[in-house]
Amino acid sequence: MKTVIATVAATLIAGSAMAAGHCAAGKTLTDGTLTFATGNPAYYPWVIDDAPESGQGFEAAVAYALAAEMGFAAEDVTWTRTSFDQAIQPGPKDFDLNLQQFSITAERDKVVDFSAPYYTAPQAVLTTQEVLAAGGAAPTMAALKEMKWGVVASTTALPVVMEQVQPSQSPLVYDDNANVIAAMQAGQIDAALFDLPTALFTAAVLMENGAVLGQFDPAAAENPDQFGMLMPEGSPLKACVDEALAAMTQSGALAMIEAEWLQEATGVPLIK
């Protein structure tokens, strides 16, 4: 079923691609191909099975849809891997577009270029069944303040925790999602802040005792966490990418991909 939807979507998008024209011609790293970068490893549900070439997973699907919109056939799309640090280092980059849930911030925008946002991520609180069973954990700010927090260093989660939650104990900080989960299993932290799709997947699949406590209302946030595709500063592609993304938003193609790959999050309570 998914393949059918994907094919239909791809056909729809390919149809409109002709209209958009080849605004990217001569502006990519290698003429005629569009090079995307993702994380190493790339995480579910953004990329399924760490294989972006399959087009499976939200970001992989968005990448192929965007490429089609910009006039690139699927076989003209190549993938590379970078860390966050490689994406922001001052030298030449080996990708045209880098998408691995990079949040758009004003400071980062000074060093690199971001496309228009392709996803607005609600922030969600991940915890464990044990913490819930022990009581005291509730989706309220007062309860969140008393929890021991852990966050991933390279994300925008730390400022959100510090400014919005203002916990009574200082948070612990880790390199990646796997370490946060290990610390949670070891009982060293009670709660961790992730974007909602990551939190849902982590609770359901990566942890035996995981639970999503609640989500922050993205509409209420002053600076909602928006994911953008990262490009080298001053990239000539930006106008073309933004135009293609706008067309995908308008046609509903982006919403379709989101509905296909990112779970409905209706069961997660809002934090008060």
Binding site: F84, I88, R108, V112, S170, L172, V173, N179, Q188
Partner: peptide, 23 residues
């Protein structure tokens, strides 16, 4: 030790690095 949570100087520098996209 920062690998397992404590925010010591290198971790603090890493946090600034990712917020400011600057080394």
């Amino acid at each position: 030790l920062s690998f397992i949570g404590p925010v010591e100087i290198l971790r603090q520098a890493g946090i600034f690095k990712s917020l400011l996209a600057n080394f």
